[in-house]
């Protein structure tokens, strides 16, 4: 697939200052600053209702901000949102493919919204259908497509104008693991082509695998923003032992015996106990001494950072 991102060079993809949106007297986005470079893959992470979609919509000129300054692809938003969107592709949180059309017609019709002639879209049709792996289903109505196929078609639809910037709101939510892997692979390809990717997700693995940087948003604030590796490094001990079921109960029983826990941080989460440590060997020694083998060891992940920074209580 050709790519249009080459010339943008030094112009940042997104600059936002003091981005704020009020709904019913509440600041659901509250003074967010963002700087995203062209060609970067950037993730917005946050619990339900954190303000991810609202932030994305403001950047795209779909929701007017209550306060703040936005520049996307060098265009002031919302004033020049139309000009910016000509160079952007959008995958919304909820699919809104056109139910009156087949797969192919969806692409042609969407191209027309960008001012593309039928012929121009037809010329890229093979490529777009292949990208979505829907070549065989090109003439089927979209009602017959699986969730994964619909998502892929929505992604292909966002590419009809060969965009420099792709904004994806939860691109893989609700998909099975195979379909999700598939989307990730597509997103990797798009990144390699030099396009800027801005996505929101609830899958920390998605952000860790795909993104150069991630911002964790909670209650409309950015609580941390850095590369996934540095976020882990800065906010959490690198080693984790996970105890489940009986082992967790056993651990808690031992603890009430008054064991000292120097250097370890214990985080009980429902039926599971997480024990974080700075050094792998001493962590494992301590755990083994208390409850023997059978525990699960893993390196700390972005998910641990996320839970640490946004707390464990349910949202919504």
């Amino acid at each position: 697939m050709g790519h249009a991102a080459v010339e943008t060079g030094s112009v940042p993809a997104v600059v936002a200052r003091g981005l704020t949106r009020r709904y019913g007297g509440v600041n659901v986005v509250d003074g967010i600053d963002l700087d995203i470079e062209a060609g970067e893959c950037f993730a917005l992470l946050g619990p339900n209702g954190a303000g991810k979609t609202t932030t994305l919509r403001m950047l795209l000129g779909l929701t007017p901000p209550s306060a703040g300054e936005i520049t996307v692809l060098g265009e002031p938003i919302p004033q020049r949102a139309r000009a910016m969107r000509e160079r952007a592709g959008i995958v919304p949180q909820f699919d809104n493919l056109d139910p009156d059309f087949s797969v192919r017609e969806n692409l042609i019709t969407y191209g027309a919204y960008y001012g593309a002639r039928r012929r121009e879209v037809e010329a890229r049709m093979t490529e777009l259908l292949q990208f979505a792996e829907l070549t065989e289903r090109a003439d089927e109505p979209i009602q017959g497509l699986s969730g994964g196929m619909k998502r892929r078609l929505t992604l292909a639809r966002a590419l009809v104008n060969d965009p420099e910037l792709l904004a994806l709101d939860e691109p893989s939510t609700g998909l099975d693991p195979q379909a999700r892997q598939h989307i990730w692979e597509r997103l990797h390809t798009l990144r390699r082509q030099g396009r800027t990717l801005l996505l929101t997700t609830h899958y920390m693995e998605e952000a860790e695998r795909l993104c150069d940087r991630a911002a964790i948003i909670d209650h409309g604030h950015i609580v941390a923003c850095d590369s996934p590796t540095r976020l882990i490094h800065q906010h959490i001990e690198p080693h984790v032992v996970e105890l489940r079921g009986d082992l967790a109960l056993q651990w808690m029983g031992r603890l009430s015996g008054g064991e000292a826990l120097d250097g370890l941080r214990v985080d009980p989460v429902g039926e599971t106990v997480l024990i974080y440590g700075h050094e792998r060997d001493s962590l494992l020694d301590r755990v083994e001494a208390l409850i023997g083998p059978g525990y699960l060891y893993r390196p700390a992940s972005l998910e641990d950072v996320f839970l640490r920074l946004t707390g464990r209580e349910l949202r919504d």
Partner: peptide
């Protein structure tokens, strides 16, 4: 949601 889809285009 056809309108929403159109509004995401220019």
């Amino acid at each position: 949601q056809t309108w929403a889809a159109m509004l995401a285009a220019p």
